Amino acid sequence: MTLTGETPKLIKAFAVLMFLASPMVATNALAMGSSDTWSSDGTDLSAVSELVDTGMYDMAIDKVENMLKDDPDNADLYNYLAYSQRKLGDFDSAAQNYERALMINPEHLGALEYQGELFLQTGKPEMARENLARLAQVCGTDCDEYKELSGKITN
């Protein structure tokens, strides 16, 4: 059987909705680096992570914005928000929210990596290299975030 038209999108949306309704939680956030958990200071990030991992960035943005009302000092939430905005091409908002994440936690590995990717996308390779140097200081040259950003800078 071959799926055509809107059917794959509906199946994908149904799968995400089933995940959100399910009490089961997976163990790793794919799009956000090497996180060992989907919790951040008591905030469950699994639903946001699933939306981001499946490319449902608009829905992820809505979810994060609602979560920020209860947890306005969560660097992970700002990182997810910025990541989703960047993926949708809203570079100005993404830049502001990476900055917010890094103001809360200057050593946030994901925000440093993804802000560096934003710098590359917006023609600021020297700033991306600064983020790479910061990652080297914070986690060394063997951490996933350093390797990812380094690979994108050299390409």
Rank of each mutant, 00 (worst) to 15 (best):
A111I: 08
L112M: 13
L112N: 06
L112S: 08
E113C: 06
E113G: 01
E113W: 05
Q115F: 15
Q115W: 15
E117S: 08
E117N: 11
E117G: 06
F119T: 01
L120T: 05
L120W: 07
Q121P: 00
Q121S: 13
Q121N: 09
G123L: 02
G123N: 06
G123P: 00
K124W: 05
K124F: 12
K124A: 12
P125E: 13
M127A: 15
M127K: 13
M127N: 09
M127Y: 08
A128E: 00
A128D: 01
A128C: 03
R129D: 04
E130I: 05
N131E: 07
N131V: 06
L132D: 00
L132Q: 04
R134C: 03
R134W: 05
L135A: 05
L135F: 07
L135G: 05
Q137P: 00
V138Y: 08
V138R: 11
C139R: 05
G140A: 11
G140F: 10
G140Y: 12
G140P: 08
T141K: 14
T141S: 09
C143W: 14
C143P: 09
C143K: 15
C143N: 09
E145F: 14
E145G: 04
Y146W: 15
Y146P: 03
K147P: 00
K147V: 13
K147T: 07
K147L: 13
E148A: 15
L149I: 12
L149V: 10
L149K: 10
